[in-house]
Lab assay of single mutants.
Amino acid sequence: SIVTKIISIVQERQNMDDGAPVKTRDIADAAGLSIYQVRLYLEQLHDVGVLEKVNAGKGVPGLWRLL
């Protein structure tokens, strides 16, 4: 499923980069989806406690990390 793919992308990127959070844009590119589509999935995963959003604010790139 797309959700499983997104989780594995975040996991893979974090492992490659010493646990650093992953940008929404990088996840979207790797999943082959638009940034808006991916954001909806990321928000859902956040709501159920799978991911945390590391930063927030208007015009700030979203950074995500697995919990």
Rank of each mutant, 00 (worst) to 15 (best):
W64C: 03
I9V: 06
A31K: 01
A28D: 03
I7E: 01
S8D: 07
A20E: 08
Q14R: 02
V54Y: 05
V60E: 15
V10C: 05
V22A: 05
L67C: 13
V22T: 05
E43Q: 11
L45Y: 01
L66V: 11
V22Y: 02
R25H: 08
K5W: 08
I9N: 00
N15G: 10
V10M: 15
S34N: 08
Q11H: 10
A56M: 09
K58V: 11
T4L: 13
R65K: 09
H46L: 11
V50R: 05
V3G: 04
P21G: 15
I35M: 12
R39S: 14
D29A: 12
V22M: 07
D29F: 09
R25V: 11
R39I: 14
G32E: 05
H46D: 03
P21C: 07
R65L: 08
Q11W: 15
L63E: 14
N15K: 12
Q44R: 13
D17I: 11
R13I: 13
L63Y: 09
A20Q: 11
P21S: 07
I2N: 04
A28P: 00
R65M: 07
L51D: 00
M16R: 13
G32V: 02
N15V: 09
E43N: 10
D17E: 12
R39P: 00
A28W: 02
L66K: 03
K5L: 12
N55V: 08
S8R: 13
V10F: 15
D26A: 14
L33G: 01
V38N: 00
V54W: 03
A31S: 09
W64I: 00
I2Q: 05
G19Y: 15
L45F: 01
V10K: 01
I2G: 02
A30N: 05
N15E: 11
V48P: 00
V50K: 04
E12Y: 12
H46R: 15
Q14L: 05
I6C: 02
R25M: 10
L51Q: 02
V54G: 01
D47F: 11
I27N: 01
D29H: 10
L45A: 02
V60R: 14
V54Q: 02
A28G: 03
K53Y: 09
E43H: 08
I7A: 03
I35V: 12
D18R: 12
V38I: 09
V22W: 04
P61A: 13
S1H: 12
S8Q: 13
D26F: 07
T4Q: 14
L40Y: 14
I2D: 04
G57P: 07
G49C: 03
D18M: 10
A28V: 03
L63P: 02
R65V: 08
Q14P: 01
G57F: 05
M16F: 08
V22R: 00
R13V: 04
L45E: 00
V22H: 01
R65S: 08
R13T: 03
G19R: 06
K53E: 06
D47Y: 11
K23C: 08
K53H: 05
K23T: 12
Y41V: 12
L63K: 07
G62E: 15
Q37C: 10
R39H: 08
Q37D: 09
T24V: 04
P61I: 10
